[in-house]
Design a protein around this nucleic acid. Structure first.
Length: 1005
RNA sequence: AGGCCCGUAGCUCAGUUGGUUAGAGCACACGCUUGAUAAGCGUGGGGUCGACAGUUCAAAUCUGUCCGGGCCUACCA
């Protein structure tokens, strides 16, 4: 072959990066390939291999917050689980053992509703279905969804212990949740109080806000007088300053005297549309922001067909803005404003004083009071309204809130004079209409002379969405966990929780962001006691007995142990299915105790998962949870009031510490305009759709590149952009694979400063990138890592290193040191890129890795490669940066020449480069600058260069004049060269190419 | 309605303690290449930093008000 004819086609001698059979095509076919890979990982038991591999490493616990076992997963679930997967995978590859046990939350209303509906369709009311049967149906419902969701999560590429997931409804979990509650009971924090809830007398049940619908209803409205019975001398700011209990100045005495005179016989007037709540009245609220006056009636309207209740001379206290309206309703004709009214120190009586309502009624300052309607004073019945309850408990705690209404909506003996009266009619054709309670109360008020006026009002009123009957607010006994009761080293639960919030890293240690910490802190600071009892069916009971004689909770280890043991065997159902005496044993008599039948707030369930899933902190459930370096929770930012919150309180109550060391949050998925996704608007995007159309890695990449702490925007443009990013990354891996084709260990060169500058520089870049990527992954800032990787691939590799080195890679002989160095360093690059990308692109990284190393098991069993400190090479870094600046002037000049049509490809040029600076000129001369500029030749000269030379304003002292390359075009490398230098055997190619072809020919005989 | 948070090029993001003409990648336009080719390279256009007011010699950066958006304020998870 030595005498190869001129005009030979050298293409076969060029080391092009195409791969035989193209095992790693640019067109990835992700939608089809991803599910196959998931199946493969399951088959080889990758998860167990990961555990085995990492068994000896430090532990890092990621505790999965359980999604609700109901319905197909949506895009929010996908973001959540993908972010978790990113953390788990990066921890695992950063030298830790990061075991991930996924879980499901199973109890709660949504399933209860669904099951209730199913029973109703079958013609059975919930009240007719035995509790155990009903619960069994709920369990079956959750059980149906778990495997479906699990498969959807696996499709997202989430690596987890999918065969050993946890649920909050497994028997051991239910027993553990009950046991956790009993632990809290032992702290003394659990107490029985009460709270008004939305109640449907017709259905005899409480309702959730979501079960309530608002409809028009006509109600009576009444203005009621609360007589003023005393005016105390007030303590002014000035007297406090002077240290005297009351202002004793002569002026103050006179002012007080006038005040007493003005208010003598006066009444504070309230307005309400629920007369039946008057027996429950315990306070009147006012607002400091409203101006009030004392009004005296001068005359009443004449010619009325009835005698109004108001009389000339009556003194009424009203908000100035609403006084006229109230006085007109009372049929007053003329009145006089005697004075402004100051509520401080005024004592008033219940309007039914003398009939069992002997107490004074305090005047309370409340933010909820407005002067938009009514009288500016708000009738406050803590049993019958949320605002009422809040303002009352703020001043007086749980004391003194009466139970004036029973579960049928009848007034009780705590409403003297009205016992047994129905608020709403429960039967007959008037079902849902007002019962006799309203009229009876109004009659009593009239008889007491306390009614000022009345009328009728059509307004929006809550109704049950099922029975359509009107609802009432009813005070019911409930169980609470106290936040401000000292229990552990003299600290309260609130204090311990706040201390733990300081200890935990909410991002302030990782990124300096304090918003999550502030948010949870604010919530814990402000929240009321934890209401933990619910009158529902699908949950874990409060497994306690209350002594009838004194209301104390029975605390007996033997009883508790029997309850827990039974639940471990038979689940929470045993609480309903087992006679109380069996739990109580021989020591107690069942009839002496009330068995609590409420269920626990489902937040208590999820707040207890740390106890039975990871065994926080001293009873780890797996070897991989022993002595963790750190325990992290990561959820949507709504969980500040959800899981983060309940877990914190539960664990602080039972263990005195938060169950986590780190918390990270993510925002919500929005549409492309940043608007909330909703089915009714039709702007939702399903993860299943992205998986089927684009491949789930496109979504993973999108999430990894986002600032996930903020809301995530999702639309076609973003998905397309992510697809482009994917293509670039994949093509980079593909090019590496092609360039490394047939690489053998013997070809490897030592990685030291004897390498060519380009390779020294590339190693230096990898060293830099290594630091950025590690630091970013350590702080869960995936976008920082990814953008550094992408920029490296685009700017350093594709546009520079590879572009320059193509000539070497394609045309040098295999023995060329330059080519060997390049391939060795590209191997290191490939090694790092596949590792760094593996958490984000688990499918593609695996595909690339196994394409190069088919004998290995999985890229995911790797660690992020250690990068030797010796790769740091500031000289190479700075030198190449200078060379690239000069190169930018050359490419700029070539672009001008191209526009002139004087050249096409860069190889057609041989520019002259004028460099003023001696040092820079020396740098250019120290390397093959033509190679860097991908030109066939280059001339470096000293000086400013000609005036019409090409210059860039940002690169001073460099000018370029483009000249066409001399000689002939090499038939192999397409470089222009002097044919007189050619090897006679290969006259049409450069000597370098001739050497390579000779070797190629020799290898093939 | 309140509490907390977000708002920099078409898109995703950088912008150190306030300090020169506000950056990157992608997208877009034009050109080159046709040996990364349903690829690769180069050049270029594009931003009153949500709006307004203030503090300052100087504001994307600090303060206030407003606008737009989100989460929370559920016997929802």
């Amino acid at each position: 072959m030595a005498d190869a004819p001129a005009g030979r086609d050298y293409r076969e001698t060029v080391f092009l990066p195409d791969l035989p059979g193209d095992p790693f095509p640019l067109r990835a076919g992700l939608p089809k390939k991803e599910p196959e890979r998931v199946k493969h990982w399951a088959e080889i038991g990758l998860y167990n291999l990961l555990r085995k591999d990492a068994a000896a490493r430090p532990k890092y616990v990621f505790h999965d917050g359980p999604p609700y076992a109901n319905g197909a997963i949506h895009i929010g679930h996908a973001e959540n689980k993908i972010l978790k997967d990113l953390v788990v995978r990066t921890r695992q590859m950063s030298g830790f053992d990061c075991d991930f046990v996924p879980g499901w939350d199973c109890h709660g209303l949504p399933i209860e509703w669904k099951v209730e509906e199913d029973f109703r369709k079958a013609g059975r009311k919930k009240s007719e279905v035995p509790a155990v049967e009903f619960r069994k149906a709920c369990r079956a419902y959750a059980d149906k969804w778990i495997p479906l969701q699990r498969d959807e999560f696996r499709r997202l590429g989430i690596e987890a212990d999918w065969d050993n997931y946890y649920t909050t409804m497994s028997f051991p979990a239910e027993a553990a949740i009950a046991a956790e509650f009993l632990r809290v009971v032992r702290t003394g924090l659990v107490y029985r109080g009460s709270k008004p809830v939305m109640w449907s007398p017709v259905e005899r049940t409480s309702l959730a806000e979501a079960e309530v619908e608002y409809q028009e209803k006509t109600s009576p409205m009444i203005w009621v007088k609360f007589p003023i019975v005393g005016v105390d001398r007030t303590i002014t700011a000035r007297s406090i300053e002077l240290g005297t209990p009351a202002d004793a100045s002569a002026d103050a005495v006179a002012t007080h005297a006038k005040r007493v005179k003005d208010l003598d016989g006066a009444s504070v007037v309230i307005w309400t549309t629920t007369p039946w709540t008057i027996p429950g009245n315990r306070a009147v609220s006012y607002s400091q922001g409203i101006a009030y006056g004392v009004y005296q009636v001068k005359s009443i309207e004449q010619g009325l067909q009835f005698e109004p209740w108001v009389k000339p001379g009556d003194k009424l206290v009203l908000a100035d803005k609403l006084a006229e309206e109230a006085l007109r309703a009372a049929k007053a004709e003329a009145w006089e404003r005697l004075d402004r009214f100051d509520p401080i120190g005024v004592r008033i009586a219940h309007p039914l004083r003398g009939q069992g309502y002997e107490f004074d009624v305090p005047l309370l300052d409340g933010d909820h009071v407005t002067d938009d309607a009514g009288t500016g004073f708000v009738h406050t019945a803590p049993s019958h309204g949320a605002d009422d309850f809040v303002i009352w408990t703020k001043h007086f705690g749980q004391e003194g809130i009466p139970f004036t209404v029973d579960e049928e909506g009848k007034l009780t003996k705590e409403a003297p004079g009205f016992e047994g009266l129905e608020i709403i009619q429960l039967e007959g054709k008037n079902l849902g209409k007002d019962g006799p309670a309203n009229k009876a109360v109004m009659d009593a008020l009239i008889a007491a002379g306390a009614l000022l006026a009345r009328g009728q009002l059509k307004h929006s009123y809550p109704h049950s969405w099922r029975s359509k009957a009107p609802l009432i607010f009813r005070n019911t006994p409930q169980w609470f966990i106290a936040l401000d009761r000292e229990f552990r080293d003299g600290k309260t639960l609130r204090q311990i929780a706040l201390d733990e919030i300081e200890r935990v890293d909410w991002g302030q240690k990782r990124t300096g962001e304090t918003k999550d910490q502030n948010r949870i802190k604010g919530m814990i600071q402000d929240r009321p006691d934890w209401l933990i009892s619910r009158q529902r069916a699908w949950g874990v009971p409060l497994p306690i007995f209350v002594k009838r004689s004194d209301g104390a909770i029975l605390q007996d280890d033997a009883v508790d142990a029997r309850i827990i043991a039974a639940m471990k065997e038979g689940g929470a159902d045993v609480w309903w299915a087992t006679p109380a005496q069996e739990f109580l044993g021989a020591k107690y008599k069942a009839e002496d105790f009330e068995k609590v039948e409420d269920i626990l707030d489902v937040w208590f369930d999820s707040g207890s998962t740390h106890a039975f899933v990871v065994g926080n902190p001293d009873a780890p459930t797996r070897a991989s949870f022993v002595n963790p370096v750190s325990t992290i929770y990561l959820e949507g930012s709504d969980q500040h009031r959800g899981w983060f919150h309940s877990s914190l309180l539960e664990s602080c109550a039972t263990r005195g510490r938060a169950p986590y060391d780190e918390v990270a949050t993510h925002g919500f998925t929005m549409d492309e305009k940043g608007m909330k996704m909703s089915k009714s608007i039709g702007n939702t995007i399903e993860p299943q759709t992205i998986a089927a159309q684009n491949g789930i890695e496109i979504l993973r990449l999108l999430i990894a590149s986002a600032e996930y702490g903020d809301d995530l925007r999702l639309g076609k443009i973003m998905i397309d952009q992510s697809g482009e990013m994917y293509r670039k990354l994949r093509n980079t891996l593909r090019y590496c694979l092609g360039s490394l084709k047939g690489f053998e260990e013997s070809e490897r060169v030592p990685l030291n400063h004897d390498l060519p500058l380009m390779e020294r520089w590339l190693l230096h870049r990898l060293w830099q990138l290594d630091r950025v990527v590690r630091q970013a992954y350590d702080t869960y800032q995936f976008r920082v890592a990814l953008s550094a990787i992408v920029e490296f691939c685009n700017v350093d590799l594709s546009a520079f290193y590879v572009d320059v080195r193509k000539d070497t890679l394609y045309c040098d002989a295999p023995t060329s040191l330059r080519r060997r160095a390049s391939r060795t360093v590209l191997g290191e690059t490939f090694s790092r890129l596949t590792a760094w990308l593996a958490p984000i692109l688990p499918f593609t990284a695996e595909e690339a890795w196994l394409t190069r190393f088919p004998e290995t098991v999985s890229v995911h069993l790797r660690q992020f490669p250690q990068t030797p400190a010796a790769w740091e090479d500031d000289f190479a870094g700075e030198e190449v940066a200078r060379l690239r600046e000069a190169r930018a002037v050359v490419t700029g000049a070539l672009e001008v020449a191209r526009r002139d049509k004087s050249i096409g490809a860069a190889l057609e040029a041989a520019p002259r480069v004028f460099v003023v600076d001696d040092e820079l000129r020396a740098s250019l001369q120290a390397v093959d600058f033509a190679e860097l500029c991908i030109t066939s030749g280059i001339v470096i000269e000293a000086g400013e260069g000609p005036a019409d030379g090409f210059r860039l304003p940002e690169v001073a002292g460099v000018a370029v004049v483009v000249e066409k390359a001399a000689g002939v075009k090499c038939a192999r490398s397409w470089k222009y060269f002097d044919p007189s230098t050619a090897d006679p055997r290969y006259p049409d190619i450069t000597p370098r190419d001739a050497e390579a072809v000779a070797a190629w020919d020799a290898a093939r005989g």
